[in-house]
Design a protein around this nucleic acid. Structure first.
Lengths: 158, 158
DNA sequence: GGAAATTCATTCGTATGCAAATGATATCAA
DNA sequence: TTGATATCATTTGCATACGAATGAATTTCC
């Protein structure tokens, strides 16, 4: 096998390259984590444009309290995907705003119970229609069918 | 029209309810923003399990510098979706680690040029294979076809 | 040429987000 | 019963993330 077999050499190279097409090629902009971060940023920005006086985590806490009623702080955190340290800060700020009130569990003295105040309930009821708009605007780049598929796959991923 | 027309009344109510099926119904767990936040959290967790000594934003900065070479701090920020305040902190920490070096632009004295050090280049080359695994693991709940569809829709959204 | 607008970077303040350590309380098990 | 475990909450430290204000340098435009 001498250098006369030029086309055979080329074919071999093509095969090798076909096995490892991305050896030197890493495109940050195409990685799921990078795009996920950007999509999340965009959502937070849309949220802020519609609801200026509350953050998404604060809204989530109020919305979940509306669903389940009084719960312990950590339990609420697990319902809205926040660890103990994070949920504490969120609840502290909601308390300072008068949207939630805290009390001690009668039996289990470790637990800190959280509940909506009347003002907090008013706020979340008032904000839910805006939250629907936020969801709509976030999904606006997709058709209805695309959005449905996307939501199903995103849920699988999360 | 008296109260004899009971079934007609019922039909009317059904119609009204069909128009507004979710009047009192807001499911936080089904909102795109909430799930997006959880999916992002999951990705960050997977990232940390594979690459313990660098955060996703720090990795993004190194990967992008590898692509484009020396750039100004703000320009780098816009390439990886970070505002000026955020990118400064990321670059400061990468500089403290010896992964990037800073210099002043000769002509435009406002600009702060950022570039990889030899150590930074070694690091990013070493980490890219791990980053591929991170992407794979993040998308693991989806089939190859689902992942392709998801990435296309996610890109549209971000 | 020079005032106005723009760009680059920094700083400050506020808000997640999480790991790790700690203390108080409750539960489990030998 | 009591000693080991587990749970609930707090605190500290670090790292994004972004709005707003500031200062320095450049560009635009009349």
């Amino acid at each position: 096998m001498g250098w006369a077999a030029v086309s055979a050499e080329d074919n071999l190279l093509e095969l090798v390259e076909a096995e490892e097409p991305d050896e030197n090629d890493y495109r940050l902009q195409e990685q799921v984590g990078f795009i996920l971060r950007k999509a999340h940023q965009r959502h937070v920005s849309i949220f802020a444009a519609h609801i200026a006086d509350l953050t998404p985590p604060q809204f989530a806490a109020l919305a979940k309290l509306r669903d389940v009623g009084e719960t312990s702080q950590n339990q609420l955190g697990s319902l809205i995907a926040m660890d103990a340290a994070t949920v504490k800060g969120v609840i502290d700020r909601l308390k300072a705003r008068g949207f939630v009130e805290l009390s001690k569990h009668e039996i289990d003295k470790r637990r800190l119970l959280v509940n909506l105040t009347a003002e907090g309930r008013d706020a979340i009821e008032r904000l839910i229609p805006l939250a629907r708009e936020i969801t709509q605007e976030t999904l606006a780049p997709l058709s209805a069918k695309e959005a449905a598929i996307f939501m199903k796959l995103l849920a699988k991923l999360a």
